[in-house]
Amino acid sequence: MTIAPAAGLGLKPQHYAEAISDTAAGAWFEVHPENYMCEGGPRHAALGAVRDKHPLSLHGVGLSLAGDEAPDEAHLAQLRYLVDRYEPFLVSEHLAWSRRGGVYRSDLLPFPRTSSALIRIARHIDRTQEALGRRILIENPSLYLSLHGHDYGELEFLVDLCRRTGCGLLLDVNNVYVSASNLGYSAEAYIDAVSASLVGEIHLAGHAPDPTLGAGLLIDTHGAPIDETVWRLFRRLVGRIGPRPTLIERDDNIPTYTHLAAERDAAASILVYTHEAALVSA
């Protein structure tokens, strides 16, 4: 019997060997495809070996879907190549922009959620799904600025994009918490409003207070263990919508594999528990 992907880990190069030999039930891995946009070498060999043993997800950071320029065709072609080569079970991107005028800004930048932005981004998602020949998931980003000029709330905007393009949601619970804290709204209300049928994946990560401003500005660092508040929001979410493939992201202060696997296993037990609870109440 094949076990459906349960809780997974962001794959780091220092953990390739341990990832390949990991036998946890439902274990899966996620990478940024941009890190594999080279022609060959040890990185591809290692990713191929991980993929031989485990399901893989490609989580893009460079398509700039919210930008005022269409997704770069060469980038889409490279992404399609990786999709064909590694056959990921999920492909995702962000509701953000980064590329414009021949320059790539390596961050996930915000924009006003206007009616014309909705049409523009839906067009970019359509083009991406057409180029990849499959459905993608879109992730809610961490927000650090209270922009004026929004016509839509973030969730409303994401749901409308899903409705227009057939894409799904990658709900990053840590990003919900960081944005809600920075911009002053209720993370619980956001989590409670998410439509169960649209969520295809969940992300969990650590954050940190800004070094100078403190808790007034939380930074989505991916550099610390998952905060208890975020675990609580996660339990609240899956308690309502049921289990989804859930990823532990860690990109800075990377601890041992054992440490990350323990966080992954903690998420896996919550998923199993909510699944069993749902079966009992059904």
Partner: peptide, 9 residues
Amino acid sequence: PPIDPALVN
């Protein structure tokens, strides 16, 4: 600045 999101290049 980088011109491409594939910072590996």
